[in-house]
Nucleic acid binder design. Structure first.
Lengths: 170, 170
DNA sequence: CAGATCGTTTGTGTAGCGCCAACCATTTAT
DNA sequence: ATAAATGGTTGGCGCTACACAAACGATCTG
């Protein structure tokens, strides 16, 4: 029902090539453009794109264990250590031992971390303007909201979501 | 037209905004998740994520020079060569010499290339379902449309678009 | 003709990251 | 209490995706 492909039947002759509307490649493409543009802006702040991603996830996910963070970021937990070391020595993030399970580290944004994240995002305005230039402000807001919800709603461990669903008609 | 984001109605009136709503990090985050999930699905088809990105861009951008492709993908033109070699030996892409400037190669999707791209996108349904699980079909469609427009509207060379910066208000 | 431009090859360097192995501290199971 | 499992940390190995530079043939342009 949401398969209405729309126009864009370009040069090809009569063939009605129905194109699949998958966002993956576009996501990849835009993310790359954005990341490249961001690096130079973020550098003065002592941050790299992945730091910003981690901070963003942490702002959303609150006090989370390192493993939880690893599975949300989808990077190996050994690499999370180094990432958090960066952020912690910069004072942007805090590792506290969990009271109920003292093996665990509860990671959360510090006050300055939240502030710095905000500053960084603010500094990215120009980069975003370049990459999302074709979208008007309202659309960018819609995009942001969709991305945020998709990203927060994504199950940390993709294990339990592996069940089958009725959408296998493709 | 494709704007109805439903209720997630946050304040359009607001100035209460404490956090900057920049999409960069979220884009990065989701793209990563998607890419990782996609790899395993794409492998059987002999494709890697970046191939899919290239094919997607080519479907949108039609006959384009390799330099144009390089600047759209934002990768070095020397690396475009290898990328296209992969795709061309797989018969998914075609290099023809431009009639007006015979130095140039005009790159375009072949028939089988378009087909394969479609198949690949189709195969990615499950991956997309996992990553975008929090979004309902209409929202995913909206997201796709926004991404597509942003990506196609992005000027290949960001040079000529860089003329101004009146938005230092942030 | 000279010089710039497009694509190609080759070679070098680097960053990001997966992965393995070993090691504490702690929790849970026997 | 002893054993096993778990969360975090460290170190190291290796791979992939690039960027960057140099040199070359073919071609366009002044």
């Amino acid at each position: 029902m949401f398969r209405h492909v729309g126009k864009l039947g370009h040069m090809s002759s009569g063939r009605v090539e129905q194109t699949e509307r998958r966002s993956g490649a576009l996501l990849d493409h835009l993310a790359r453009r954005m990341r490249l543009r961001s690096e130079s802006v973020l550098a003065p702040l002592g941050l790299r794109p992945r730091h910003l991603v981690a901070l963003t996830v942490l702002r959303e996910a609150g006090g989370i264990s390192q493993q939880g963070l690893a599975s949300s970021l989808q990077i190996d937990s050994t690499n999370v250590v180094g990432l958090l070391n960066d952020l912690e020595t910069a004072g942007l993030v805090e590792r506290r031992r969990s009271p109920e399970d003292r093996r665990r580290h509860v990671v959360s944004l510090t006050e300055t971390g939240a502030t710095r994240l905000n500053e960084a995002e603010c500094a990215l305005a120009a980069a975003e303007d370049e990459v999302l230039g074709a979208l008007d402000p309202a659309e960018r807001d819609t995009l942001y909201e969709l991305l945020r919800r998709a990203s927060s709603g994504a199950p940390a461990t993709c294990v339990e979501a592996a069940g089958e669903d009725p959408d296998t008609l493709c």
